[in-house]
Amino acid sequence: MYIVRSRDGKEHKATVQQVTASDLKTIMKSKRFGFVWVNERYATVYQLLLIENGGTLGLMAIKDRKEDHAIEIELLESAAENVGEEKAFANVAGCLIASACRLAFINGYNGFVCLVPKTALIKHYISIYGMQYTGMYLYTEGQNSLALIRSYTERFYPL
């Protein structure tokens, strides 16, 4: 996966990895994340990692809902410097969401990924990620999830 630096449009190699509880405590010490990540509610946390320096660009907690054939994104946060107009790297959240879609295909869920949005953000998730809204959850699956994987992680697995 390549992530784009906003300043000059230069691509940098990045990868998504699962984070251990002790890694998470170390990441929190950097003071670049504001949500409460060290919480037993979040059993599986992934990070988007910049290969060149091992820096964490963003974090995502997911729940694998096997019985529902779904991956639920419980929490996602880009590091403070990757939020807003002056962000250092673009597409951090997109790369993490696309990785969740990929996992949802690998688990046999047809790429089904959902999240409970803040009301004010619903229209933006729909326009940015092509998600569908059902009254409580936003979700993506099938072709739309594949399109997200192509858009954000196409160069992740060069063959």
């Binding site: 929490l75 880009s78 959240a93 949005p117 953000l121």
Partner: peptide
């Protein structure tokens, strides 16, 4: 916010 987060 939507481009960077899923809130708790």
């Amino acid at each position: 916010l939507a481009m960077a987060h899923v809130f708790p």
